[in-house]
Amino acid sequence: MTTWITICDTCKQDGWDTGEMTQTDGEALATLVEAAATGLNEVRTRRVSCLMGCKNACNVAIQSAGKLNYTLGTFTPSAEAAEGIVAYATAHANSDTGQVPYREWPQAVKGHFVTRHPPLPKE
């Protein structure tokens, strides 16, 4: 079953307005996550404008039908963060419930979990 990484592409970290930003922090993270997920069958990416987690920018959601879903945030747009997000999403995709044992979490996602959502009821 496919796990989706939903990336907020409008996220801006503190101080964004004082620099010469050509793209938002969310756009930068999205580009890195998309590159890290290239060629994977079990993980797909999509961008959205605003996950309403501005206090925790940069935000992503890890989602799949019938599984636990997660929101993660407070990432710095970096290759390490993107690779950790994709590695976690891959483990989520390979889990029957969406729950990934803590010992299997990539270091790059530890401390970044914001919320966990139970699967929606089937009816």
Rank of each mutant, 00 (worst) to 15 (best):
T3V: 08
W4I: 08
W4D: 06
I7F: 06
C8Y: 03
D9K: 11
D9N: 14
T10L: 10
T10W: 06
T10Q: 11
T10H: 07
D17Y: 10
E20C: 10
T24F: 05
T24G: 04
D25A: 09
G26E: 02
E27T: 09
E27F: 05
A28R: 12
A28E: 11
L29N: 00
A30M: 08
A30Y: 07
E34V: 11
A35F: 08
A35G: 14
A36V: 07
A36I: 04
A36R: 03
T38S: 15
T38H: 14
G39R: 08
G39N: 14
L40Q: 05
L40R: 04
L40C: 05
N41A: 15
V43P: 01
V43Q: 01
V43D: 00
R44Y: 03
V48L: 04
S49N: 13
C50I: 06
C50G: 02
L51S: 00
M52W: 11
M52L: 14
G53W: 04
K55D: 12
N56E: 12
C58V: 11
C58R: 00
N59C: 12
V60H: 00
Q63K: 13
S64I: 01
K67W: 00
L68Q: 12
L68T: 08
T71Q: 10
T71K: 03
L72R: 02
G73C: 07
G73A: 07
S78C: 08
A79G: 09
A79P: 06
E80R: 07
E83G: 12
I85K: 01
V86G: 02
Y88W: 13
A89I: 04
A93I: 01
N94G: 13
S95K: 07
Q99D: 14
Y102I: 12
E104K: 14
W105C: 06
P106D: 09
Q107K: 15
A108R: 02
K110D: 10
G111L: 08
T115Q: 14
R116E: 15
H117L: 14
P118Y: 06
P119Y: 02
E123N: 15
E123V: 14
